[in-house]
Design a protein around this nucleic acid. Sequence first.
DNA 1: AGTTCAGTTCATTTTAAATTGAACTTCTAA
DNA 2: TTAGAAGTTCAATTTAAAATGAACTGAACT
Lengths: 170, 170
Amino acid sequence: MPELTRSSSVPNAAQSTLEHEFVAIFSDLADLFGNPRSHGAIYGLLFSSERPLSMEEITARLGISKGSASQGLRQLEELGAISRTKEDGERIHTYVARIELKPLVAGFLHKRLAPRLESGAGRLRRLEKLVPSLPANFRPTARLRLQRITKWHKRAHAFLPIAQKLLQGD
Amino acid sequence: MPELTRSSSVPNAAQSTLEHEFVAIFSDLADLFGNPRSHGAIYGLLFSSERPLSMEEITARLGISKGSASQGLRQLEELGAISRTKEDGERIHTYVARIELKPLVAGFLHKRLAPRLESGAGRLRRLEKLVPSLPANFRPTARLRLQRITKWHKRAHAFLPIAQKLLQGD
DNA sequence: AGTTCAGTTCATTTTAAATTGAACTTCTAA
DNA sequence: TTAGAAGTTCAATTTAAAATGAACTGAACT
């Protein structure tokens, strides 16, 4: 006995293009920021879903392996883009997209940008110590260049919290 | 007769670590924003150089092929990160890094981010037209999700010029 | 018009990154 | 404590991206 109108499990054409488009949008977005497309795809699928999905459903709908799904889901959770739940008494975890911008932006800034800025700072300090052992006629330009990067660095640092404020909001 | 102190063409240890570090810093930076590392390397080399360099010198110092160098240089120029000169009467072009943040930031925002935002807008408009053909009980959530992305989209759009102001300065 | 060399193009190769899947671990409930 | 399914790990494979290099184009000089 096939189900009829209300909550048919066979999605109509519009539904699946919608899903596909969400998946595509977030795949592209992930790619733009140097993340694997599949992670974007997972997020997109969750974003478009009415209800929490299990890993099994995700692998099935996206046609990706358990391994990929597992790793992607972990990364997304670490980033704060999705959350994982397990109803007690249930055996499986389910996942939902966090659809506020805040966790996405914050996660990206803190997990990707901030660590680089940090290591960059160390690098610059080490380079500055190197200047005195340059041939005298090269020192001035070297100092100038280093100052230049240092300035960029500081600006980027100051920029992070502002960006966060501007981008999130709710 | 080997040259002596002032402008020796044999770089001392400090000089080459400096150069290497600049190359490394910009390779990483390029990578962070999804650009090929070699493009960062070229920029880093030019950034650390006292004088304009020819393509030939670049391939030699970085150990990359003519093809790579040619393409990298073109991309960097398109982005506004370097500038190319030819002294009249000279056969070769030379390249220098533009060491102000402005062209780099502006180039990145306009060449990479802006086009994506543009195509994203089109995509969203198309999706909105799709909603009416969804099963009635799915429409509300779909609308909500679309509104959500649209909001993000607008915010990103508003963010671009602000980011530009904040990051450049001089 | 011919020669030479700087620079470009693009089909092939190389390299790096992402994905797979089989073996393993962990958790739950009997 | 065992059985079975969910979930993880990681060596091996696949895929996508970047680098190569040989053939080509075009400009400068003769």
